[in-house]
């Protein structure tokens, strides 16, 4: 057999035998922490509002860490964008049922040259304070990620989520009574509209109510989405092709914009659901609690017992 064919056969599949992405129940726990650079990253179409809503529905307290100040996202200029985007992030978090938004306020889209260990150490402090079982964020190994904020927050998170559990990491935190604490599960998402961002290994099923909250949370970011200007732009583009949307006749641009975003969210949630054989889903690259020990996977699966 030619080596290249052999290697193709050896490529390890992630999908189950029937070709469907495996549905993964949420891990047992109490706290989840979403660590993202921007005001809207917890609600975008390629992640993770549905997952957050489901964690909340299953009893988790969920916190949102926004690493940047979002000064460049929107039409108002730096300081006003910062204020408006923060307000909308808080409102969107409330729609999803999250407890709190914590802003680190690094300068938006200037995160490439920042001291990564400093950002990581901020996240470690928050992990020790809030004690998440689960961390959710951009897949740090994501491909075609053009945004420097996404890349660097993902990488800082990749170290912080487990290093927060080590005694010799920032021992001064003990002065505040904060003990080492490790999060054991990581959900990574990737931006798929820029290329093959990641190949997910699990799907998380959503119900219709969770999709609805995901839609609403997304639309809450009116500074950048679901505003009349976006509907006008789409209508103009369609008009140039002699096309129109019947549902948009006799409604204002604001309502049309919201409708458009709801269609998109419904569509993408169904697409992800179809991958897993359910109505609605989101997909992720999931790192399980003992994935860091690849040599012990089979042994632990065989030998670990319930008490």
């Amino acid at each position: 057999m030619r080596p290249i064919l052999l290697f193709l056969l050896l490529a390890l599949p992630v999908a189950s035998a029937d070709g469907k992405l495996p549905l993964k129940p949420l891990p047992k726990g109490k706290v989840a922490m979403v660590i993202q650079p921007h005001h809207d990253d917890h609600t975008t179409d390629y992640g993770m509002g549905g997952l957050i809503a489901r964690f909340v529905d299953e009893g988790y307290d969920v916190y949102y860490v926004r690493a940047s100040n979002d000064e460049k996202d929107g039409p108002h200029g730096y300081p006003r964008n910062d204020m408006v985007n923060y307000r909308e992030a808080v409102a969107a978090a409330k729609v999803l049922g999250m407890k709190k938004v914590i802003s680190l306020n690094w300068r938006n889209d200037y995160m490439n040259p920042i001291p990564l260990n400093e950002l990581r150490n901020q996240i470690i402090l928050l992990i020790r304070k809030y004690k998440p079982d689960v961390v959710i964020g951009h897949n740090p190994w994501e491909h075609y990620q053009k945004n420097p904020d996404h890349r660097n927050v993902g990488r800082a998170m990749a170290e912080a989520w487990w290093m927060a559990g080590l005694d010799n990491v920032l021992p001064e935190h003990k002065l505040l009574g904060m003990e080492p604490h490790q999060a054991w599960y990581l959900y990574g998402k990737a931006r798929l509209d820029w290329g093959l961002g990641q190949r997910p290994n699990i799907a998380v099923e959503l119900n219709a109510e969770q999709v609805r909250r995901k839609q609403t949370a997304y639309e809450t970011h009116r500074n950048v989405y679901a505003n009349p200007a976006s509907a006008r732009a789409y209508k103009a583009a369609l008009a140039r092709e002699n096309l129109h949307v019947p549902e948009w006749e006799n409604i204002d641009d604001q309502t049309a914009a919201v409708m458009m975003e709801e269609w998109h969210m419904d569509w993408i949630s169904r697409q992800r659901g179809a991958q897993a054989g359910v109505r609605y889903a989101e997909d992720y690259y999931f790192l399980d609690e003992f994935d860091y020990l690849p040599g012990l996977q089979d042994y632990l699966a065989r030998e670990v017992k319930r008490r």
Binding site: I4, F7, L10, A11, L12, R199, G295
Partner: peptide, 15 residues
């Protein structure tokens, strides 16, 4: 590397 990466055996684009 330890075998963390499920795609570690995929061939590069040319031999």
């Amino acid at each position: 590397a330890q075998p963390h990466d499920p795609y570690r055996r995929e061939p590069e684009s040319t031999a």
